[in-house]
Design a protein around this nucleic acid. Structure first.
Lengths: 148, 148
DNA sequence: TATTAAATAACATCATAAGTTACATGAAAT
DNA sequence: ATTTCATGTAACTTATGATGTTATTTAATA
């Protein structure tokens, strides 16, 4: 089943953006992600609507972070991307009045709700600066990160 | 994103099969699920390979439960369906040596692993007879369930 | 006013799950 | 024996939804 890697990609982009002093154009972000500027705009639009980044048109324009990485959690970005459910597992709906279908769906749904609650709670506990700090620990980038 | 309702559907089918005294044909199961006999065979094949059901060709043939519902858990059927991951969330892999990508993916992966472990544990705790019992409690089916 | 870059609509491509057709295998009824 | 019924499986088609692309508009700076 298809995977949605937008969360991973956007986190990656945001942390890189934090290290820049000028806005990043959709073009640059796209080439970094091996994708297309329009796809970048489409995805970043959700983050802009929630206030995590801004976009500026014209010369010197592009995308910029609005707040510190320490003020953004994985959950924030996850929510901003607006994916309905994190699970590939769905419920049947052929016989919505069949008590067996109801019992089965209720059981599955209970589990999905609990697991999703845990996942969202964990996402809420991680801020982006922590991920950037993990990056600073990486040997190859000691000098680059010490300059930040 | 697309949902996989095979778990829900198969559980539904297995509990109904438990109430029958003759094998259920792929045709019958398919019409119950508003789908196609070949799709049913394809899906049930996984359950057969794990020993939860048998299939018999020819006259009077079809699919039968091999064991009691109390011996089958949601996890058993989930595993038998052979879906790799329960999450729609995936990781990026454009820059596998970029320490930021690594840190981001590690953080997401940690959360997914923990949430999936919880989900599988909960699936492991539920046997199909419990779902069938929930069905027995349902007012409309008091008489049907008392005859079982 | 020319250039740069986002905003957005409309359309095309691609991946993959589900559905379908066709034929082979095997078991039971006649 | 032969017909019928039902699964097994390969090969192909369809449907869906995300991603990618093109084209045009809007707005900001050089």
């Amino acid at each position: 089943m298809r995977k949605d890697s937008r969360l991973s990609r956007m986190l990656h982009v945001l942390i890189h953006m934090n290290q820049l002093d000028a806005p990043a154009t959709s073009e640059k972000i796209a080439s970094m992600l091996n994708t297309n500027p329009v796809v970048v705009r489409r995805t970043m639009a959700g983050l802009r609507d929630k206030g995590y980044v801004t976009s500026v048109k014209g010369h010197g324009g592009g995308w910029s972070l609005v707040m510190a990485l320490s003020d953004i959690t994985l959950l924030d970005i996850h929510n901003a991307l607006g994916e309905s459910s994190v699970f590939t597992i769905g419920l049947s709906d052929e016989h919505t009045s069949c008590p067996i279908e109801i019992a089965v769906n209720q059981a599955i749904s209970d589990v999905l709700i609990e697991a999703e609650a845990l996942l969202l709670e964990r996402f809420r506990e991680v801020t982006l600066d922590v991920l950037a700090a993990g990056f600073a620990d990486y040997p190859l980038n000691q000098q680059a990160s010490s300059g930040e």
